[in-house]
Design a binder for these strands. Structure first.
Lengths: 146, 146
DNA sequence: GTGCAACTTCAAGTCGACTTGAGGTCAAGA
DNA sequence: TCTTGACCTCAAGTCGACTTGAAGTTGCAC
């Protein structure tokens, strides 16, 4: 045998991704099964890495369709580098905002002000984090596990 | 007049948040109107800051309910500092993952490998970003505008 | 006083990402 | 051979966060 084959239950167990989600991802073209044993899907071990990639992409706020577009064409139509660069920029802005939010939360933990909105430091942090976040609706943000 | 009053259309225009969303947020208790002119809601100018806060919270991946819990009780039951600290930690982990993802994307832009999965650098970055992201499903991550 | 654009309420619809349920199939162990 | 349990398919349901639509009301310009 070439690479190791795992059935769907093993992939689910090793990745933590439910079998129902694996089927759903396959249907969406995000992962591919390499065959069947009876009815059961078999996956190449590489699927685990791919799932990790999908998880990270989701964590970064990309939709499944975007992830598919970014990584699906293995040797396909050629990946859009400009799009990737734009995504990296987007991510960078997100990171800056989240950093401000984190600082704001840490401050709130320590701050004695009765309501955080009355604390000038907190308000300054919010303003920093919010610059541009408002008034330019596009999509929204995701929630990370772990 | 004490503070400046804005009607819902002005708030919508200045914040970029649709009036329907403002009504929805009010219903959820995230913002409060200070009165009415006829049927029309009037808001205190401070609502703009509050909306910014909500936007940043969303960008950080918090649900509306979580945001409400974090900031709603203006002088209320007392804010849960431990929860805020935990959120800050969570955010910090998210930020590290997103940073890895961003680096991965930037590398992908420059990398000549035919498929990114075949590039050792990219795979290393994915592994770094994924550590813990997989196998510990809980929720998912946000998508930031702007 | 009359129009009407812009607001109001309330219920229902939408969207992405899955999950759940009903009914079916199969490989492997007793 | 027969059971059984884990998988299969396909349709429908769920959840959060809004958006849309129908039907009603009203401040303000004329």
């Amino acid at each position: 045998m070439a690479t190791q084959h795992l059935d769907i239950a093993q992939v689910a167990q090793q990745s933590g991704v439910p079998a129902s989600t694996l089927r759903f991802y396959e249907e969406k073209g995000l992962i591919a099964s390499t065959g069947r044993r009876g009815l059961r899907r078999l996956f190449d071990a590489g699927v685990l890495e791919r799932l990790a990639l999908i998880a990270v992409g989701r964590a970064a706020g990309f939709s499944l369709d975007e992830i598919a577009r970014m990584f699906a064409p293995e040797g396909g139509p050629r990946i859009d580098r400009q799009m990737l660069a734009a995504k990296a920029e987007e991510l960078d802005r997100t990171i800056r905002k989240l950093s401000a939010m984190r600082d704001g939360l840490r401050h709130a933990v320590a701050c004695p002000a009765p309501s955080h909105m009355e604390c000038p430091t907190f308000r300054r942090i919010v303003r920093a984090a919010a610059s541009g976040a408002i008034g330019a609706r596009e999509k929204k943000a995701p929630k990370l596990p772990n």
